[in-house]
Design a protein around this nucleic acid. Sequence first.
DNA 1: CCGGAAACTTCTGTATACACTTTCCTCATA
DNA 2: TATGAGGAAAGTGTATACAGAAGTTTCCGG
Lengths: 212, 212
Amino acid sequence: MPTPRSTRAAADIRIDLLSGELRAGQKIVQESLAARYGISRIPLREALAQLQAEGLVVHEPNRGYFVARLRAEDMREVYRLREILEAEAITRACRHLSEADIERIVRIADDVESALSTGDLARIGAANRSFHFAVFEAAGMPRLTRILAGLWDSTEAYRGLYFQDPANHQHIIDEHAALLDALRRRDAKDAVVAQAAHRTLSLRNVSDRLPD
Amino acid sequence: MPTPRSTRAAADIRIDLLSGELRAGQKIVQESLAARYGISRIPLREALAQLQAEGLVVHEPNRGYFVARLRAEDMREVYRLREILEAEAITRACRHLSEADIERIVRIADDVESALSTGDLARIGAANRSFHFAVFEAAGMPRLTRILAGLWDSTEAYRGLYFQDPANHQHIIDEHAALLDALRRRDAKDAVVAQAAHRTLSLRNVSDRLPD
DNA sequence: CCGGAAACTTCTGTATACACTTTCCTCATA
DNA sequence: TATGAGGAAAGTGTATACAGAAGTTTCCGG
């Protein structure tokens, strides 16, 4: 396995955080959490450092890490930031997209469809993410891509819930198609609108499950 | 001293990175860098993890950390992202600012002026940063504040050069005053413009010193 | 003389161990 | 009963140590 323990731990913690296993505001005792994942504190701390950059945990010197409080309002912040930054990414992408880029994105969109038909949530999530980030990366702004990745990560666990409902599958396919169509025409405005529609739907889905 | 070694190391590395001591693309050998700062590899790794979130270094599993390549183009990306995100922060801040907030910001602006008169670069930098982040924080968007902090950090070392030139001192004072005036009037549009002027000037100053 | 595989070197990733800080409890005192 | 000093317990921050992966050199067969 080429994945370091710290990376895997970060993924595990994300799940536990967002599934409510680790509750908001709670102190994170490194020893016990490390034991839970069967690793030592060193890789755990690196995972926590990464999650801090995503805003899922906060750190106080000599006092340790605490679970950040995620409320509906936080979710709205994440989505507002995505709105702004994804608009920038897509607008720039429209300027730079080559035909090869578009072909590649089309192939990934096909992957998403075939993943949806299997119902394998992990595969759907991975494919969907690949699709959107293939577009974002075409903007040629690596920092922007990284920031967006952090924002996506911070709500990663909720996306599974969204994919779980088969009623959403056709929406996803349609919205990806709309985005692709706009990209083909290099129509930044339409592309931004298509992306926004996609995002708004999933925000509604997610924020219903949070306090406040 | 309440600062953990890892935090201090991150600051040290930032300086060495941006002063050219550590060159772009270069592999970071943890052992030697740790020795250089007189610490062990553990806090160094945590510092590197943090710097990765800022985009100053990149990590490849089992291969280690490498110095990110910073070109004028990267600087333009950082400033473009700041432009978008600071506009959002200031717009929201205008909605939420209380009189007490404004008073506090005024006091910090005075700190900046007195720091400028002493010529102490570290103090000027700290005061200037406090000033702008006091405004950003008033937006009530903690993730946005954190992202902006990362963007500021990634060019921190260059800001010193800007403050060093006394010709810029009056600019800084005037622009802070203009921003404050707009904030008092809760005029989001003017405030964004004032902030933009401030930023543009320092971008020009910084990007002249980079390759490409 | 060259290509490729095996041994070696170097460095990363992680476990263990310990010092120092914070927190909590106890108990004496007003 | 409330309060604060003192000390024990718990937990973080970091140094040291080691296993294993990546990179490098050496050596052999062609």
